[in-house]
Structures are given as C-alpha cells and as structure tokens.
Simulated scan of single mutants.
Amino acid sequence: METTNVTTDRIKLSFNFDAAKMLEEAKALQLDNFEYYDVIPLRSPAHLVDTSLPFPPPAEDYADGSWTDWLDTAALEKSPYLTSIVNFFKKHTTVNLVRLLRLAPYATVKEHTDPTLGLEIKKSVIRLTIPILNNKNVIFFLNNTPVLMESGECWYMRLTSPHKVINNGDEERINLTIDVIPNDWIRQMIKESDKNMS
C-alpha cells in the first residue's frame, strides 16, 4: 500500500463540524460521574456491540482493524449529528473505532506513542481528531510542541510520534476520534491540507 509523505506531524483538514451540536449530544450521553479519562464508544468491534455474535478468531496482525467487523453502538444511534459525521467518513473510507474521549479537569494523559496510528506505517489505521469542548488551558503536545486545535476542526496527527495531553483548566475536555483505514481519498485530503498549511 502507498505511503503518504507529508511535511509535518499535524495537519488541519478542510472539514469543519458544528461543535455546539456535537457538545449537546456528547453531554446527553455522559455518565453522572467520571474521573481522569472517560471513553464513550460510538463504533466498536461487532462482538462488543452485539453480544450474540462470536468473538473474532485470533489475528496475526491487529493493526488495520480487519480482524473484526465494526458496528455503531447504541450511543451513536441516539446521536443524529454525530451519526452524520461518522456517515460522512463512511461514504469515503472504512471507519473502524469511533469514540468520545473526555479528559477531566486538571488531568494528564502521559506521554506515549501509538505504533500503528500514522500514514507512514504500511498497514495502519489513522486517527482523525475533532475537538468538541476545549479550553485555553488544555494543551495537546505532539513531539513536545503544542497542537493548536479549535472546536469543530478535524485534525490528522502522526500519533506514532510521542504525544501527551495536559488539562490545566477547571473544565473537562471532550474530543471525537474517528479511526479510518487510509485510502486514496483520505490520503488526498491530507496531502491537499498539508499543502495549504505549508
């Protein structure tokens, strides 16, 4: 499979979404209490969504998500605007894992890497990040440099590089993350956006 050479480790794509609508639906799904990091799955491995389905057989390589089928969860089905965003990407590429990620006030995601989340990996998934609720005290560091993301924007980041998140604010942070299989369409979108940022 083709790899995509880009000039930077972070690229804002040309897609923008309505952060207020996303936030309204995210808030409707929230649990009453959470600490540190909370995940609401919106699209998950089929056997986790429909427990009547068998576990998938063991796979030699889990990198690209082809080891299982992926289904929308009940949480996504309750959320029409979030569904429309997921469906937008489904029209163009294969969508695997989709989640709402909430980071508590004054919490930190320690620096780490995700070995399969980069276009430079031949068999991979890439993660698109759409901030929903952000504040000026939330800093996403990629290669020790802040990524300045605004709510409603859609970003590709090379997460095979070291990254961490620090929430120094008194408000939670909520992101929508969409894992997709790189194909010609998303590669072209990333290349064009990369040129526009250069």
Rank of each mutant, 00 (worst) to 15 (best):
T8C: 04
R10C: 09
L13H: 08
S14H: 10
N16K: 12
F17D: 04
A20L: 11
M22P: 05
M22D: 07
L23N: 12
L23Y: 09
E24D: 14
A26N: 08
A26E: 07
K27R: 15
A28S: 15
Q30R: 15
L31W: 12
D32Q: 15
F34V: 02
F34T: 01
E35L: 11
Y36N: 15
Y36T: 12
Y37K: 13
Y37H: 14
Y37R: 14
D38F: 14
D38W: 13
P41T: 09
P41W: 05
L42A: 09
R43M: 09
S44K: 12
S44C: 04
P45Y: 01
A46F: 08
A46D: 11
V49F: 09
D50Y: 01
T51M: 09
L53F: 02
F55L: 14
P58K: 13
P58Q: 11
A59N: 03
A63C: 06
D64R: 05
G65S: 06
G65E: 08
G65N: 07
T68H: 03
W70I: 06
A74Q: 13
A75G: 02
E77Y: 01
E77Q: 15
K78S: 12
K78Q: 15
Y81V: 05
Y81M: 05
Y81C: 05
T83I: 03
S84M: 07
I85L: 08
V86L: 10
V86C: 06
N87V: 02
N87L: 06
K90W: 01
K91D: 14
H92N: 14
T94D: 07
V95F: 12
V95L: 07
L97S: 11
L97H: 12
L97F: 08
L97R: 15
A104V: 03
Y106I: 02
A107S: 15
A107W: 08
K110I: 10
K110P: 04
E111Q: 14
H112R: 15
D114Y: 09
G118M: 05
E120T: 12
I121S: 03
I126C: 04
R127M: 07
L128H: 06
I130W: 00
P131V: 03
P131C: 06
P131D: 09
L133F: 00
N134K: 03
K136S: 11
V138M: 12
F141H: 12
F141S: 08
L142W: 01
N144T: 06
T145G: 01
P146K: 01
P146I: 00
V147D: 06
V147Q: 06
V147S: 09
M149W: 09
E150Q: 14
C154Q: 03
W155Q: 01
Y156P: 11
Y156H: 08
M157W: 01
R158T: 10
L159M: 13
T160C: 10
S161D: 14
N168L: 08
N168H: 04
G169T: 00
D170Y: 03
E171G: 00
E172Y: 13
E172C: 04
E172R: 06
R173I: 00
R173V: 00
R173S: 07
D179Y: 00
I181G: 02
I181Q: 12
P182Y: 02
N183I: 04
D184G: 07
I186G: 03
I186Y: 06
R187L: 03
Q188N: 14
M189F: 02
K195N: 10
M197N: 13
S198L: 13
